[in-house]
């Protein structure tokens, strides 16, 4: 399989390969374990997230993808191990990371513009300033004209655009996306995926993207980490290379894209009930 690095991540050899492919990590996960009582959710998991790229966490349900993402976000504490963002250890939520929620987590009593500006509001940015920033990102996600609408007046896809704009407006270097498109319909989802690709290209940010869709992961990722459950661990890391620079319309017809999708399904199918 050309252009694919298939690797067991915790051996020395593969660590080297990764370092050569991605010399600079924005986020490092080092030997992280997370136990709930006697249940091991994550076990001794290590992973590097290259700066300016999009890394997907992919795996069957219950494999701890969201747990890992929330540990990186600082919303959950690991039982052992450490997380580093730009070399500094994570001890809680910080201004260097912004989260996009699976169920959007919008404030239903607040207008779109207040929702988008909410992260800045919590940081004490003055109203006029934060609203002008919010307006810019509302435009960027294509919601101009809806500034004063309320979440219940928007479709699911538009609500998630609000969630995305909120995360972008705090200007964090790392964006954490927890199955952001799982609650929107297929067509909206495709549009989102294309928009996400152009975001990765134009915003100089590191994206960590949790998904359970194989096609989605392969379509948008620079690096895919496949997680297997009970206890959760990284089973392989895949870096699609051949079609990343092609335009959005031809990716799904690229032979390498199809190969990777098949290969991932082959390794995951035995874990699907």
């Amino acid at each position: 399989m050309k252009g694919i690095i298939v690797a067991m991540p915790q051996t020395e050899a593969t660590m080297k390969k990764q370092t050569s492919a991605a010399p600079d990590s924005a986020v490092s996960v080092r030997n992280v374990s997370k136990n709930y009582g006697t249940v091991e959710a994550l076990k001794n998991l290590s992973l590097e997230f290259p700066r300016g790229q999009l890394t997907s966490l992919l795996g069957p349900s219950g494999c701890g993808k969201t747990t890992l993402l929330k540990i990186i976000a600082g919303l959950l504490q690991p039982t052992s191990g450490r997380i580093e963002v730009n070399g500094a250890e994570v001890e809680g939520p910080g201004p260097d990371r912004a989260f996009v929620f699976q169920d959007f987590a919008l404030l239903p009593w607040a207008s779109v513009i207040r929702n988008v500006a909410f992260g800045l509001e919590l940081r004490g940015v003055a109203k006029s300033e934060r609203e002008s920033i919010a307006e810019r990102y509302i435009r960027d996600v294509g919601l101009t004209g809806f500034e004063h609408s309320y979440p219940h007046e928007l479709s699911g896809g538009m609500r998630q655009r609000v969630g995305l704009a909120r995360a972008l407006s705090v200007d964090a270097q790392v964006l954490l996306l927890d199955e952001p498109f799982s609650a929107v319909d297929e067509q909206t989802r495709r549009k989102f995926q294309e928009d996400l690709l152009s975001l990765v290209k134009h915003e100089n940010k590191t994206f960590i993207f949790v998904t359970h869709s194989i096609e989605e992961a392969v379509y948008v990722s620079d690096q895919i980490a496949i997680l297997l459950p009970r206890p959760s661990r990284v089973s392989e890391i895949i870096r699609p290379t051949g079609f990343r620079h092609k335009d959005v319309d031809s990716i799904r017809r690229d032979p390498e894209y199809l190969d990777i999708v098949d290969q991932i399904w082959a390794s995951l199918r035995s874990y699907v009930e």
């Binding site: 929330k70 976000a73 600082g74 919303l75 939520p93 910080g94 201004p95 990371r97 912004a98 989260f99 929620f101 699976q102 169920d103 987590a105 404030l107 909410f118 992260g119 919590l122 940081r123 909120r166 705090v170």
Partner: peptide
């Protein structure tokens, strides 16, 4: 998730 959202934005 709303409380989590607020925490992640440093509330």
């Amino acid at each position: 998730s709303m409380k989590e959202m607020a925490h992640s934005f440093l509330a």
